[in-house]
Design a protein around this nucleic acid. Structure first.
Length: 603
RNA sequence: GGGGCGGUAGUUCAAUUGGUUAGAGCACUGGCCUGUCACGCCAGAAGUUGCGGGUUCGAUUCCCGUCCGUCCCGCCA
């Protein structure tokens, strides 16, 4: 019992007349009824102040014995987070007691009558802007965390964004159609969450990874413009920007080209950002090819506000005496450089820390570096391996001069780029090498349709239904690895928000692509039979995209993690620390589902 | 599956080279206080040092294992 000794009141016929944050000077002398949580209490013995909080804000209510002995007496027992309703008169504060840091700081409410609606256990951490508590504590006590302003703000932004997107899409002629959460398992893509069927013992539904296939079927069915704000599920390991379940703004349109889809995407983002947070994004969004993004930023989702750029040096080392770089190039790898000019402030020990970091965390073989000192001399562990011609070529390509610091990676294409891309972001932010823009939205386009795996087998880069560019269709027969896809990504502030493409609407091309990816026609039939069938009943040209709704909220709310824009998120190990999910279930439940659980016994 | 960082009171942190009674702020409990707004003052209570094992006369400290949180790689689009 948390309310021992304190009698609780009902609301009776009393109702709130105003929200806390809405009360201002204009209401002085008016009688109001406010309700909310005891944010803070300051008991001066004679007079008691309570900061009363509701969703709209905080207002100071005052209990004086001369106003109401009874209310004052009862207010003495109030504690943090108790729930009260108070009737009183709005009074202007004297000039020396105005609190300019509070929105309602010019007034206070002189309470005549209090109703104590509920008591509360003490909160595990302070309900304020910065919780200052460990994330595990915050997640275990999510209700208290949700009372804090940052989460109240981000969930409100989330709501506004959702509302705005829905409005724009409806305005653009899209209709909202729900698709099943109990769907069919697919061997492709991410690991499925499975749901056992009771009626079909031994069979399973899968929660949808996305409504991809279903929305294509809706296009074939003739809905022309579909959208859905859809929950999606992927049983893969988590990241700051990846939750097991997440929300996509999913849409698909018929009889369109890539530019039509991108235009809709732009309109949605611009309008909804304006509605949700008052941000004005510039249209049109710049477009960058995948090849360019990788070349300049080492990353297919560049934050172009960071001014540092990578330079390719592979050619220079193709015939080099410097064996470790040369060897990488001979094996098909690349040599890439991140030049940082005027880098005097990066100390030698900082370089050592960076090297340790890229080795330990990113799997780098090392971190080559060259520092050009004030006299133009090279201070570098690798300079002695380089010929004069190589040094000249490096200087020319990197634009190095006194004060420059060059970081090198010689490795496979993916890894060399990934490592330098990470350094680019870390150093760019640390050194403040940014262009000062707050928002950076762009499209990355011209992705290849296929990529080769270790065995040389072609596989899809995004998903198997992406259509090739029309002019590249002949290449499917001759040089399939050169076929460009119609895929595009939309990036904001270095976060991949969403992606889409045109889809294969011709069954012959879809079959050809599946064939190139190594599917026999039997396998193709088994995995995608109903899709292929759908393409044979009059499938219109169509395309669309899926947009990471949570991620956009995260970017707009300037949060670092999806957990800060989701009401009840899961930990990296997939647990809900509040509800304690997942959990074992009763054997009767399993029995009904014809399921027997086998968990490896601990040693 | 792998790597980095972290886990001590409700909470945030401290604790010398391994040393005897594990401290502090906030929160909490009690008391005082009629203008505070992170109120103030006085007093008090509060610990399985994540868990298990090992080394040692002695472990919060060193070692091994394990669990949890987080960031990253793999995975995922």
């Amino acid at each position: 019992m948390t309310n021992e000794g304190t009698a609780l009141d009902g609301m009776g016929s009393e109702r709130r007349s105003h929200t806390c944050g809405s009360i201002d000077r204009s209401m002085v002398d008016q009688e109001v009824v406010v309700a909310g949580w005891v944010h803070r209490r300051r008991d001066h013995g004679g007079v008691i102040f309570v900061d009363l909080r509701d969703r709209s804000g905080v207002v100071q209510v005052v209990f004086r014995p001369e106003t109401s002995t009874r209310a004052h007496e009862r207010a003495g027992g109030l504690r943090s987070e108790w729930v009260i309703m108070a009737r009183g008169v709005v009074e202007a504060r004297s000039s020396d007691t105005v609190n300019s840091r509070m929105k309602t700081g010019e007034i206070e409410i002189n309470v005549h009558e209090i109703r104590i609606l509920n008591s509360a256990t003490p909160p595990p951490f302070a309900i304020e802007e910065d919780a200052g508590a460990d994330e595990a504590v915050r997640l275990r006590h999510r209700i208290h965390d949700l009372r804090r302003p940052p989460l109240q703000r981000s969930l409100t932004i989330r709501h506004e964004l959702s509302r705005a997107m829905r409005a724009v899409l409806i305005d653009q002629g899209f209709i909202e159609i729900e698709t099943p959460m109990l769907a069919r398992a697919t061997p492709e893509g991410a690991r499925d969450f499975l749901v056992p069927s009771r009626l079909q013992a031994g069979s399973f539904y899968a929660l949808p990874q996305s409504p991809q296939i279903m929305k294509q079927l809706l296009m074939v069915a003739g809905f022309e413009r579909y959208f859905q704000i859809a929950r999606c599920f992927r049983d893969e390991d988590q990241r700051a920007d990846r939750q097991l379940e997440f929300t996509q703004v999913d849409l698909e349109m018929s009889f369109v080209g890539v530019e039509d889809v991108l235009e809709v995407l732009e309109i949605i983002m611009v309008e909804s950002a304006r509605e949700a947070v008052g941000v004005e994004l510039q249209r049109p969004f710049p477009q960058m090819s995948y090849a360019d993004a990788m070349a300049r930023y080492g990353c297919d989702r560049p934050d172009t506000r960071i001014l540092l750029e990578l330079v390719d040096m592979t050619e220079i080392f193709a015939g080099s005496e410097f064996k470790s770089f040369r060897g990488v190039v001979d094996n098909g790898g690349i040599v890439k450089c991140l030049p940082v000019h005027n880098a005097e402030e990066i100390s030698r020990s900082e370089i050592d820390r960076l090297e340790k970091f890229v080795r330990k965390e990113l799997g780098a073989k090392g971190l080559g570096w060259v520092r050009v000192d004030a006299e133009g001399e090279w201070r570098s562990p690798i300079a002695k391996f380089l010929s004069d011609e190589e040094r000249a070529a490096i200087t020319e390509r990197s634009g190095a001069g006194p004060g420059s610091l060059l970081f090198f990676q010689a490795d496979e294409f993916e890894r060399a780029n990934a490592i330098l891309s990470r350094l680019r972001i870390d150093l760019g932010e640390k050194l403040g090498r940014t262009d000062g823009r707050e928002w950076d939205a762009l499209f990355v386009v011209d992705f290849p349709l296929f990529e080769k795996d270790e065995k040389g087998q072609l596989g899809y880069v995004h998903q198997p239904f992406v259509a090739p560019l029309e002019e590249d269709i002949p290449l499917l027969e001759t040089e399939p690895e050169k076929v460009r896809g119609t895929h595009y990504d939309v990036i904001m502030n270095g976060v991949e928000l969403g992606s889409g493409s045109l889809r294969n609407h011709r069954v012959d091309i879809q079959r050809r692509i599946l064939g190139l990816m190594g599917y026999t026609s039997e396998e193709a039939e088994k995995s995608f039979g109903f899709m292929l069938e759908a393409l044979e009943v009059g499938a219109p040209p169509h395309g669309g995209f899926a947009f990471g709704f949570d991620r956009m909220v995260m970017v707009l709310a300037k949060a670092d993690s999806l957990r800060d824009v989701v009401a009840f998120p899961k930990t990296q190990r997939g647990q809900d620390l509040l509800m304690e999910a997942p959990s074992p279930v009763d054997s009767e439940q399993l029995e009904e589902l014809s399921i027997r659980v086998r968990v490896p016994k601990p040693e």
